[in-house]
């Protein structure tokens, strides 16, 4: 048995291919496809979801996520600039906010801002209803994460850029706005897009707020559908809808990363 190193590697590779084929074959033969299809992918239940799932649930999920992301981005930028400030109290405040909302589960933030807030301050309500709470909660959670990303991006811009801008007579804030921050955002575009994907999924937590039918997001929509049909098909369709949002975003991120790799 004097196999050369290369031959042994080749056999090992074939063995792995064979194993994969075997597993797929066993699943294909052993599975009861008819019953699987009936509980997970009933054609008439799939058909029933459309077009309302797109017009209501998918649209709402995108709106909640987009509003939360925009608010989070602005909050993250402010927190990042506070974190980099030469004024101590700004740094401490920003660190506290970041640690708080990075450390809390998103569900806890939703509970605090939804049912928690209305119980603590019965005379007030967060403007915008479900959308308002979602924007605030997702923004706080996302903003805390993005603040650290943005801070790292700002610090990754070479010091010479700020010096060149200052040497041309720009003030510190003018140089930040025109020169440093635009370059920082180019650097952090991939991690920011990742954050957008995470927020898309976190937006499902809005279900705890008690929404009206036209406020349903994808997850709430799927749970209701699942309960009323006593079948898992609606939740599968909902899962595919999430992938419809997140997979293109992932592809965009990968493209951007490949591009910035080339530019290096």
């Amino acid at each position: 048995m004097a196999l050369s190193k290369r031959k042994r590697a080749a056999y090992l590779r074939y063995a792995q291919y064979a194993l994969i084929v075997l597993v797929v074959a066993v699943i294909a033969f052993a599975a009861d496809w008819a019953s699987l299809r009936d509980s997970f992918f009933k054609p008439d239940l799939v058909r029933e979801q459309f077009p309302d799932i797109l017009k209501t649930a998918l649209k709402n999920t995108i709106i909640y996520t987009a509003c939360g992301f925009v608010f989070g981005l602005l909050l993250g930028l402010v927190l990042a600039l506070m974190r980099l400030s030469s004024i101590g109290p700004w740094r401490w405040l920003s660190t506290a906010i970041i640690e708080l909302f990075r450390g809390l589960p998103a569900l806890v933030v939703f509970l605090a801002l939804g049912p928690g807030f209305s119980r603590a301050f019965p005379d007030y309500e967060i403007p915008g209803g479900g959308l308002g709470v979602a924007t605030l909660a997702l923004g706080l959670v996302g903003g805390a994460y993005m603040a650290e990303t943005i801070r790292a991006g700002i610090q990754a811009v070479p010091k010479g850029q700020m010096e060149a801008a200052r040497s041309l007579g720009m003030s510190h804030s003018r140089a930040m706005i025109s020169i440093v921050i635009p370059q920082a955002f180019r650097i952090i575009l991939p991690p920011l897009t990742n954050e957008l994907i995470l927020l898309t999924k976190d937006s499902s937590l809005i279900y705890i707020l008690g929404l009206s039918l036209d406020e349903y997001d994808l997850t709430k929509w799927g749970r209701e559908g699942m309960n009323s049909a006593a079948n898992l098909t609606p939740i599968i369709v909902v899962g595919l809808c999430y992938l419809l949002i997140t997979v293109p975003l992932s592809i965009v991120v990968r493209r951007m990363e490949a591009k910035s790799e080339r530019a290096r």
């Binding site: 010479g160 850029q161 010096e163 060149a164 801008a165 370059q183």
Partner: peptide
């Protein structure tokens, strides 16, 4: 004028 130019790359 700097040794490393420091043009604004964007």
């Amino acid at each position: 004028v700097f040794q490393s130019f420091n043009l604004f790359p964007h």
